[in-house]
């Protein structure tokens, strides 16, 4: 198979370049990550992040043939050749396919991604009804791979101010948690022209989420909650 991969070494390169590779995949190579690992045995200067190789750690997100995805969940079968691999769009490139996620995680931390509850804890645990627990489905599964935020045009133009789809999905995960008592504060924080309202419902986020989640739906629910709150 043929691949064309974005290369940048900050120690030697002034500008990024594309490098072509020829690779003969072997029988066990099912996913794009398998091919990348094989490529790494040929050219060990090629850099990319990976860990769990099964779509749980979220570290091998990249732009694959113009669309964001996880290399470990992308089947080799059906990939148009040459397979063009670039780092996540809009993120500063550290080296090759490795991007700087500092800002992405700063946005994640800004929405206080933990349960806030100032009431006295019960003796054993804070219980939820099955219906309350059900509300977290489609939200808690996010692995913070950044496929969505780095495919969002609104995030490209204001990466420092717009929280982005990943952070907003996480924000809604805690807004809709029955055990969390900080809903009003969370909504007040999000009621901002940049943090939440740069979203124009383009839905690129939902298009590329490798876990099949819908950040655009979470954002829609946050806006509805804000309107209800203020009326």
């Amino acid at each position: 198979m043929r691949l064309s991969i974005y290369r940048f070494n900050p120690e030697t390169d002034l500008k990024p370049r594309m490098q072509d590779y020829e690779l003969a995949p072997e029988a066990g190579d099912k996913k794009l990550l398998d091919a990348l690992m094989r490529l790494k045995t040929i050219d060990d200067s090629l850099s990319f992040r990976r860990s769990c190789r099964e779509g749980v750690c979220g570290s091998d997100a990249m732009n694959i043939n113009g669309r964001n995805g996880l290399a470990c969940l992308t089947p080799l079968v059906g990939l148009k050749e040459p397979v063009v691999l670039r780092p996540l769009p809009g993120f500063p490139v550290i080296r090759d396919l490795i991007v700087d996620m500092t800002q992405f995680f700063a946005h994640y931390h800004s929405i206080k991604p933990y349960l806030i509850n100032d009431t006295v804890p019960p003796e054993r645990e804070r219980l939820q009804s099955p219906a309350e627990r059900e509300k977290l489905n489609g939200l808690y599964e996010c692995i913070l791979c950044a496929c969505c935020s780095s495919f969002c045009p609104s995030f490209w133009w204001n990466p420092d101010k717009f929280i982005g789809p990943a952070g907003l999905l996480q924000a809604y995960r805690f807004i809709s948690d029955s055990r969390d008592t900080a809903t009003a504060e969370r909504l007040a924080y999000l009621d901002d022209v940049y943090r939440l309202f740069r979203c124009r419902t383009i839905m690129n986020c939902t298009e590329v989420c490798p876990k099949g989640l819908s950040p655009s739906h979470a954002i829609e629910r946050i806006r509805q909650a804000l309107v209800r709150e203020s009326s």
Binding site: D191, V193, L196, F197, L226, V227, S230
Partner: peptide, 10 residues
């Protein structure tokens, strides 16, 4: 008036 949700609602 034009910050946050007001502009969006308007």
């Amino acid at each position: 008036l034009f910050l946050g949700q007001r502009a969006w609602v308007l």
